[in-house]
Design a protein around this nucleic acid. Structure first.
Lengths: 213, 213
DNA sequence: GTCTATACTTCGATAGAC
DNA sequence: GTCTATCGAAGTATAGAC
């Protein structure tokens, strides 16, 4: 038997550079553009090095998703600890940054079992944190959990902004302002704060670079 | 100048066969699997024939989207003419059939201008039909359009079921039953009917083949 | 309308030198 | 840790025969 192939370590300096290049490619040109050759060019190295750090391209996709997911979860947990967790949740789910990447990963999940399992596991954690915060916020506002299910509210608070962000990236905005006004009105009712943050305007703004998933 | 390349006609018998093959490939293995070679194999012809009917692969994607979009719009308009348009809208947006294809097209739209424009135009029409029906239904139920914006309700009725379907294809269902119960309760209140269709259960069921987008 | 044949590009992955 | 070199497979697209 010949010597087995060698591989790079997790804490290498080059590894995150490759992941950055892959993320940018994926967001700008889709998952199909994430090839060992193109990642290498973008990172300023040779293609063989990509395979040195990631045995297969699937391993690279998985590592890329995990890195973004962990960063996202950390941000979510930090936001939910704010004095207005419902507002914070709404704002975080309205961010357009990771929308393009998320769609690419969902598409990848359609036909790659490993990716699908990873996204499902991540979503589970994300949703659990959201739901716990929503339940707490509703309790604090004196809303009866029997009358309004915190789980249902959580799904609503996740669905609406995400679809709005997706449609926005298509340049399609019909009904968005009205839906946002409706939800934000409810949020102010449930969670009144000292200073209300610019009512009526959409918190997302224009898209920008950033390696979240 | 040599004789220009020849191309097939729109009403050919083979053309839809190629589109069927492409749709199945796209749903099962993602947009990256839709190559002239693989479409040809699936359709039982030679690769050159794909290029005979579609000048480029982009043209094929565009034709595929248009065909599904038109079928979808027709189904939507038919459904909205039912005696319970709100229920019909909720059910149509809860169908899982086209979810995988829609995600693939959204991913394609991230980096193909022609696809993005086409999806935006289609969404515009889809949303306009939905909104008109919602406004009519709310009026009929005696809901004041000043108090509850029909545009906002339309966005909610589109967002929630779509995210639920997407999450379902990942095998992730946290909070779905509760959200569905919440919405369906409101629907029954707004739009009471003679026979209530199996309350509490999710209308989608398991996925199945079908060439909608 | 469909095929054969072909030109050219790009892909994943590996072995082995430096 | 990084590179050169290389294999075999698969991609788009076209010309021209049948």
């Amino acid at each position: 038997m010949t010597a087995p192939r060698r591989f790079g370590t997790e804490d290498s300096k080059t590894r995150p550079v490759l992941l950055d290049a892959a993320a940018r490619l994926m967001r700008d040109e889709g998952y199909a553009a994430v090839t060992s050759r193109r990642v290498a060019v973008k990172a300023g190295v040779k293609p063989a090095l990509v395979h040195y750090y990631f045995r297969t391209m699937d391993d690279l996709f998985l590592a890329l998703f995990r890195r973004g997911a962990e960063a996202n979860l950390a941000r979510l947990r930090h936001a939910l600890a704010s004095p207005q967790p419902l507002h914070a949740l709404w704002e975080i789910n309205s961010e357009p940054q990771g929308a393009a990447l998320m769609i690419e990963f969902m598409a990848l999940a359609n036909h790659r079992k490993a990716i699908r399992a990873e996204i499902a596991a991540y979503s589970e954690q994300f949703r659990a944190a959201e739901q716990e915060a929503v339940a707490r916020a509703l309790r604090r506002s004196g809303v009866d959990a029997e009358a309004v299910s915190p789980a249902a509210v959580t799904v609503l608070m996740a669905s609406v902004p995400r679809i709005i962000v997706m449609e926005n990236t298509l340049g399609f905005t019909a009904g968005h302002d009205e839906a946002i006004a409706l939800v934000e009105g409810q949020l102010r009712r449930l969670e009144p704060g000292p200073a209300q943050p610019s009512p009526g305007s959409y918190p997302g703004g224009t898209a920008e670079a950033g390696s979240s998933s």
